[in-house]
Design a protein around this nucleic acid. Structure first.
Lengths: 119, 119
DNA sequence: CCGTTATATAGATAATTGTCTATGCTATTA
DNA sequence: TAATAGCATAGACAATTATCTATATAACGG
């Protein structure tokens, strides 16, 4: 695993807001201009700009200027990165990111003496 | 799509923290007790308890008590829910969640007169 | 029962976040 | 070049978050 946890935090943070989730979902239909996006929310223009900056900075969304208009679209590659992480987590295995850095074998009572039944 | 954006927000929020990401990654290796998890961080026990509550409440992690010890493991089904959403977003198509609720056709200059080239 | 161990809760606090209004910047157009 | 339209930035502010210390609760062992 080449990425660290910290690298994924901004991505999950970008998705951790109802407005931004709806923005990304709207962009699923294709590229949209900022003014069109704005019509779908009860927020002010600066607030939308704030959200678009978070989505752009994280790489989830790509921005393109055409004159005075800004067009936004989803960035599939970055979304794939998140999917890949979830896939790694989903497939229970013996090599988590942390295990690469050292031994996480537990020597406490809870893991040896009685032992966790579900292991 | 049966879920709304708001349903996913707590899930992404749960992942939007470096400590919690590491916890989930550690649990990829299998079930672990709280005390064992704690040894992997420079945080206090109440702080770990706080994080485990967020992960448990969101459904990402399952908790199981055995005497005084708490054992935690990942909940694959909930993680799959997030993966499915990302898959929907990834596959650009003509039916986003919002489109089900109404028309998002844009009648502004930016989308008609000049028109967005990349469409 | 009483002490110990593991975990959870309460309260405090500094940092971050999402929103607004006001304003600045940039590009098109008259 | 002056006015306008679209978007970004600055500053203010209330709400949320992540962390700590202190304390409570729960379960086991003697």
């Amino acid at each position: 695993m080449k990425y660290s946890y910290a690298d994924y935090v901004p991505l999950f943070k970008a998705f951790a807001d109802e407005t931004r989730l709806k923005i990304v979902d709207l962009l699923t239909c294709g590229e949209m201009c900022a003014c069109e996006l704005l019509e779908n929310f009860n927020i002010t223009q600066p607030t939308l700009s704030y959200h678009m900056k978070i989505l752009s900075d994280s790489g989830i969304v790509k921005g393109r200027r055409n004159g005075t208009w800004m067009y936004y679209s989803n960035n599939g590659e970055v979304i794939d990165n998140i999917s890949n992480l979830l896939f790694e987590i989903r497939s229970n295995k013996d090599k988590c990111m942390s295990k690469d850095d050292g031994n996480i074998q537990c020597s406490r009572k809870c893991c040896t003496e009685a032992g966790p039944p579900n292991k």
